[in-house]
Amino acid sequence: MRIDIEDLRVAYAGRTVVAGAHLVAAEGEITGLVGPNGSGKSTLLRTVYRHLRPAAGRVLLAGTDIRELSSARSARHVAALPQERGTDFELTVREVVAMGRTPYKRAFAGEDATDRDVVARALADVGMDGQAGRRFTALSGGERQRVLLARAFAQGPDVLVLDEPTNHLDIRHQVELLALLRGRHRTALVSLHDLNAAASVCDRLHVLHAGTVIASGPPREVLTPPLLAEVFGVRAAVVDHPLTGDPLIAFDHRTPAQPKQEVPSWR
């Protein structure tokens, strides 16, 4: 399913956090949101999975305003891995992942064979199938991250909304998670701090700055040295990755850039 975000505005306590954002997450593609801290990435994602109601604009799921769908129907189509993740579940790993089947169950209905198969497959996908009986609270941060991703997979969604999904993961599990996203061929809207990961995994990027989308396009077209200097305040060269051919950003860790006062539009 395709996501269209049209003229979205979100405000907290009278302060505009997202200002008139327009962007598309095409069906079957991984669409990345990148930008400095405080640029509005998480706020925008929260409107997509209905945690926040926008002050103006709308989020369309396959042409339908997502606010017109029931909570259960929305949850069957869109699964989220937010940054504010509960860590106090007094449940086993398997029980947490099984929560992803809730949108498909009637009140007080028990598990069936389909539920059990879906949960087992989701745990295997994130490499946690051998940990199903452990308490969620006993897991490391990276393990919890993978369990919550498995819960999102268990929903069987058409769209995945992932806010910094590689947080707390070691490098091996970061690579495995990003490869897993590529292999699922589902529509995904993902915020990432790691620009090289974004350049590698995303089909299209949207750059946010001060709540506004200032650039959109394929990573190679968007992540240019001038934009990196203006938006992120870093000096960098963009070269071809020697193993994959993807854009690879080589940062100058010794000398920060001096961004101008006005951030231009890079569309």
Results as ranks from 00 to 15, higher is better:
22 H>V: 07
215 A>R: 07
139 L>C: 09
120 A>H: 11
190 V>R: 03
111 E>H: 07
135 R>F: 05
160 L>Y: 11
205 L>R: 12
227 L>H: 03
165 P>I: 04
28 G>L: 02
251 F>C: 04
266 W>V: 07
132 A>L: 11
10 V>N: 09
163 D>N: 11
168 H>Y: 14
123 L>I: 04
146 R>G: 15
30 I>G: 02
76 R>V: 14
258 Q>D: 14
229 A>Y: 03
103 P>I: 13
87 T>D: 04
186 R>G: 08
32 G>N: 02
266 W>D: 00
258 Q>S: 13
79 A>V: 04
230 E>A: 15
199 A>K: 08
226 P>T: 13
240 D>E: 14
111 E>D: 14
12 Y>S: 05
194 D>K: 06
58 R>L: 07
116 R>K: 04
100 G>F: 03
41 K>E: 10
150 A>M: 03
132 A>T: 12
213 V>K: 00
91 L>T: 03
159 V>D: 05
237 A>P: 07
90 E>M: 11
176 E>Q: 02
203 D>Q: 07
136 F>Q: 06
201 V>G: 01
4 D>Q: 15
217 G>L: 05
149 L>N: 03
81 L>R: 01
211 G>F: 08
224 T>S: 02
87 T>Y: 02
236 A>R: 03
135 R>Q: 14
165 P>H: 02
48 V>H: 09
97 V>R: 00
31 T>S: 14
144 R>N: 07
247 P>V: 09
